[in-house]
């Protein structure tokens, strides 16, 4: 039972993490009798004998039950095709839209056009079937009509949410905004004025950039303080086209 790395060290694919008897968690493979190797670039985690690596970057893999934000890319008779930033394109059937639609009599374009963002849940997904969205399960689901949607790296999502949602709660309370972080790395920011939205976007971007560092919460608090001070500088637009206002 030997560990070759410390908890939270950065490891690269092919790094021998440990030898002995452990359990295999995410992004770890066992090779031979007792060798455990990392398969992605990320931070090493050991917990109760389970070895895993938290990826620093990577594609978003849909999971049933995930709440995601997607952009409508195509419309067919009874459903929308939605880009959820994963290798697989999702569909949102008209029957799973929060409003009752009769696709035979109604033009579903009235509810969602190409380019619109929609917030929904992944209802079905497996290796054989493309993801199916459902926008009826919660009242929050449906077309995004106000606020701003920005894109962040999907692997950084847990950090922006914080443990049990602590980070997002802090931001919402301090900024008086309503920020929704979707599992696929889209962040939806709503607030009463554009200054607040800009501040929220800047902080979210900062958290994304520094997601892998320590002492993030205190730095976020500090940034909140400077942003809220009366001499706060006018905000910069730092969206670089990877999101869009709605």
């Amino acid at each position: 039972m030997t560990l070759y790395f410390k908890h939270r060290d950065i490891v690269t694919p092919g790094d021998l993490l440990a030898r002995g008897r452990f359990r295999v968690g995410a992004n770890v493979v066992k090779v031979g009798e007792d060798g455990y190797y990392a398969t992605v670039l990320g931070s090493f985690e050991v917990q109760n004998g389970v070895l895993s690596v938290r990826a620093l970057r990577g594609p978003y893999m849909p999971r049933k039950g995930d709440r995601v934000i997607g952009m409508v890319v195509d419309i067919s008779m009874g459903s929308w095709s939605v880009d959820i930033r994963s290798p697989y394109e999702a569909t949102l059937p008209a029957g799973r839209f929060p409003v009752r639609i009769n696709p035979v009599l109604d033009d579903i374009r009235k509810y969602l056009k190409v380019g619109d963002y929609v917030y929904a849940e992944i209802a079905e997904f497996d290796r054989f079937r493309a993801p199916v969205l459902d926008a009826t399960a919660s009242r929050e689901f449906g077309p995004i009509k106000q606020g701003v949607v920005v894109a962040i790296e999907p692997t950084r999502v847990p950090r922006v949410i914080g443990r049990n949602g602590s980070m997002i709660k802090l931001l919402n309370k301090e900024l008086n905004a309503n920020i929704v972080v979707a599992q696929n790395g889209y962040v939806w920011v709503r607030a009463n004025d554009s200054t607040t939205i800009n501040r929220a976007v800047r902080i979210v971007k900062m958290i994304e950039a520094e997601a892998h560092t320590q002492g993030l919460t205190s730095r976020v608090e500090e940034m909140l303080k400077t942003l809220k001070s009366p001499s706060a500088q006018p905000s910069v637009s730092g969206e670089e086209g990877n999101g869009g206002s709605v």
Partner: peptide
């Protein structure tokens, strides 16, 4: 490929 986050046995 590693930077893209694609899982691999080794570099």
């Amino acid at each position: 490929l590693a930077e893209a986050g694609i899982p691999m046995r080794d570099l």
